[in-house]
Design a protein around this nucleic acid. Sequence first.
RNA 1: GCCGGGGUGGCGGAAUUGGCAGACGCGGCGGACUUAAAAUCCGCUGGAGCAAUCCUUGUGGGUUCGAGUCCCACCCUCGGCACCA
Length: 719
Amino acid sequence: MQNIDIMRRQLKSLGAIYDWSREVITCLPDYYKWTQWFFLKLYEKELAYRDRAPVNWCPQCQTVLANEQVVGEGICERCDTPVGRRDLEQWFFRITSYADELLEFDGVDWPERIKIMQRNWIGKSFGTGISFALDHPGIEEKEIRVFTTRPDTTFGVTFMVLAPEHPLVAQLTSPDKKAEVEAYIAKSQRRSEIERLSTEREKDGVFIGAYVTNRLNGEKVPIWVADYVLLSYGTGAVMGVPAHDERDFIFAKKYDIPIRVVIAPPDWQGGELEEAYIEEGTLVNSGQFNGLPSRQGIEAISDFLEEKDWGRRTISYRLRDWLISRQRYWGAPIPMIYCDKCGIVPVPEADLPVLLPEDAEFKPTGESPLKYHEQFVNTTCPRCGGPGRRETDTMDTFMCSSWYFIRYTSPGSDDAPFDDNKNKFWMPVDLYTGGAEHAVMHLFYSRFFIKALRDIGIVDFDEPFTRLFNQGIIIAEKQKMSKSLGNVITPDEYVAELGADAVRAYLMFLAPWEQGGEWNDSSISGISRWLNRIWQLVLDEYKPDEKAAPGRIQTEEKELSRFTHQTIRRVTQDLEKLRFNTMLSALMEFTNYLAKVKETAAISNSAWQESIDILLRLLAPTAPHFTEELWERTKRQYSIHNQLWPQWDEKLAQDEEITLVVQVNGKLRDRITVPVSITEDELSQILQEKAIKANAYLEGKKIRKRIYVPGRLVNFVVQ
RNA sequence: GCCGGGGUGGCGGAAUUGGCAGACGCGGCGGACUUAAAAUCCGCUGGAGCAAUCCUUGUGGGUUCGAGUCCCACCCUCGGCACCA
């Protein structure tokens, strides 16, 4: 709660405008009660289930992690510790049921790269499941299924590989190979995640002394076990086609397994391959399919397999279900009770929230601290009234963050997670700014969560965040700011020294908002200077030059009006696109212009006041305190933040004269000032008279072509 | 390896999508004010050259009257994924 106080204070000190009456604290029972309630809803809908599976284990955090929370080469997203594997029974959400819908981004305006990251994460691939016949005494299983995206290479299968964890390995291993196979499995289990994930590592494996039959050609092929095959993808078994798969090729070379070409490269003479040929080609050595291009081969062989019932077209996803159990203390307890008689029983809604006890003991046991909290664990079964044990794991905190934005619509609601009408009024979120690092975590889970709630009938929209914008990160001393590096720049000291508005404006100015940038002390002083200049500009009295001729005044005012309207246009458009850096450049240019205007003083006082008025209003979102102060000191009506945003008039913003570039053979030779509305005929006249420099280049040359781009340039092509 | 973003002055970065490259700001240089310094203000500031002029957007080709922008090849860099069958 202390860190919340600090954050709150910093946000306020920066002048961030939030409706604090809507503040939501996800770790308090009035909130997590509803997180638990959602869990029950998902459970009812069979979107939450319990299963035993090999899961990611962080030894530092002493908890399991979802796949999305293991980053880089097997590193815990939270504490940077290498992650291991454990076989545990855990709670999962069926996010895979939504894989196809999550691939669609209809009606949302999101950065392309985030969409791509999510699509890659889901990893949809089309292929064929193929059954290889198994005839092994004493084993009921009569087939081993594999998944392949290249069924056209099936005649090239010369071995089969099972993942070390594959359930059939133990049963199929022949007695004489038993010791060797077990040793191999033990060795691969000892391998760290990093080692196992490394693509550089040499592929190794062991023949288990058993065979399957490739039904397409009736050949018996040996079964191997190798840890380059993953149990978690496809079926945990892979057909080895060394001629047309890089990994299989290396593996076959190492163990002298035959390599049979079945996809002929374009100019292939029948010789041995130097490396796996994974491109398209023509089918050879493939029985009745010989001569087909591989693309057609895929379809023909798949059709044939389906006809014979030896296989089926299949779609495979890389995405795994979302593991939400955590052995952490924080996080909402999973509202489930285990009863010896009734099994797994959900906590009745009326009994929510299941409170997190505040006196749990922390022991580095690798199990939830709640497990040793007798009062918490022991309860009665809601179904039979007998003794029951509570689930002691807590929920992934990403679950809390999957719906907090809905809670903002009605933070006090205590008979429902939110007020339905308010939800309908506010949701979905119009613009969501957040870091790209959440691409396949928070931003992904929230999409799933909303879709699930929609199907349960709790919300009526499909996507949580209509527009997404990723802000960049600010780096200091060439490194990302982090507490462990001790290079965190807190806004506090700068706010104290230069003011919140200077800090805000600096952060907006230093680089495109989505890019972030490097904090630089000397650059911020430029912003500070600029604000000081505005201060003088606004508060030092404007004294119109009484000797100025009326014609002069008219011209100057017209110029000023044009510049003003152009500025309003630039600032407004940049603001909509969240291009704050160029928005501020526009305001700086406007300030510089106004400084010159003030110097010459050839405009009326009312025109001057009007310009100041617009400058302040355009600057108000950037520098809210500063502009309010100037607004008040110049006796304007409180508050600047209640004023209308300035509107621009296209006609007034229109330039009357432009600089036209004169090129000869594409090289800049002259510039002339011409009226905007100039016609090509008029231009020819003017070119003769005015483009003196350019004409020197045209002297004695034959003009082959003249290219005129209205409003931009004329280019003479000579000789 | 695959996917995506990017490479522009001493620095952060602009450039209406093929049309004046370097807006705006920082830094630097020169000047004014000051006994002096700071602050402030004014001027200059991509490179070479006394100059006319020439060169210049990672490198090399190409398309075009014209390329930072489009196409091809390559190099570097940042982010994501990575034995996904």
